[in-house]
Amino acid sequence: MSDDYLWDGSGPPDPEVERLERLLGRLRNTAPAPSFDELSRGAAGLKTRHEVSWTSARFIVPTLAAAAAIVAMIGVTWQTTRRTHSWEVERMAGRPRIGSTLVSNTGRLGVGETLTTDAASRARLDVSTIGQATVDTDSRVRLVDTREGHHQLALERGTLHAFIIAPPGQFVVETPSATATDLGCVYTLHVDEDGTGVLSVTAGWVAFEFNGRESFVPAGASSRTDPRVGPGTPRFDDAEPEIQAALDDLDYGTDAAKKAQDLQVVLEKARARDAMTLWHLIARVASADRGAVIDALAARVPMPAAVSRDAVMRLDKTALDQWWDALGLRDASWWRKWKGPLPQ
């Protein structure tokens, strides 16, 4: 039997699906939309509740009662504090552990604690109130810090998928060879035992940084990383394999002659879409090669009128910023303004 009926009600009716629709349809949402005016008042109430004066007489008795309640609550304060400084962990498969404790269904990961999954286990983390992260098999992840506006994990090995809805910069993942700062996005980060890794971005942006070397990785692109060097040059996942291999060698190879050939491959075969990669290379190649990279980028995305070749050769931040803006990628100015100079 086809599942077209299950999909959209078309095709021959599936008797069991029909029966369940009739049964469960009784539970359907029927509540009308709340009044927008009431909602606005409710929202205003949430925002200003703390501004209400409590010094008038009608608040004195409740205040004294509240004070007594506070005393009674001292015994449970540690639990609240723990919640504030920990994240909910939900077991998805197998037997994940927090420290040495098995997570049967749910648990809490406190600051300084490590969540470990084996070859058969996976877990989901609530990243405070700003998103979720899924920890795949054979992974170790430690909660470094969590507080208003800043949430930080350390991925020691394995794979983590992050879905973050907070403003840029609030969610950070350290790895042995780079730190990933979320700029509002969905991404996957993988780290091998030797500290090498790869970041792949599905939506939004991630800034990848190690010892001042930075990569801005947009949706559809990836960046390798290696503890010897830091983040590699980002490239779109649909770039020619030959270009990707050449970039890997440029980033992490040691043979100067081979690297010169690699650069030629990249400059000749880059598509217009690969301008993002060429832009990163401007600051990464030796100054003797910089002119060729600038020419290759200009052939794909013309240098803005306000930008001079000399300024780009000097790695002038303003000039590089303006050319970046001309690439037609989404704005990453928040990161650039916050962090200062561009990738070195």
């Binding site: 709340p34 606005s40 949430l46 879905f163 809805i165 403003p167 509002g184 939506a203 939004g204």
Partner: peptide, 25 residues
């Protein structure tokens, strides 16, 4: 709770930078 969720969403909607992500959010 449905009402609570929409109230929360309304109070925080300016934090949502990508309107197309509203459903997941």
């Amino acid at each position: 709770l449905v009402q609570d969720v929409f109230l929360t969403a309304y109070t925080r909607i300016r934090e949502l930078r990508e309107p197309k992500a509203f459903g997941g959010w």
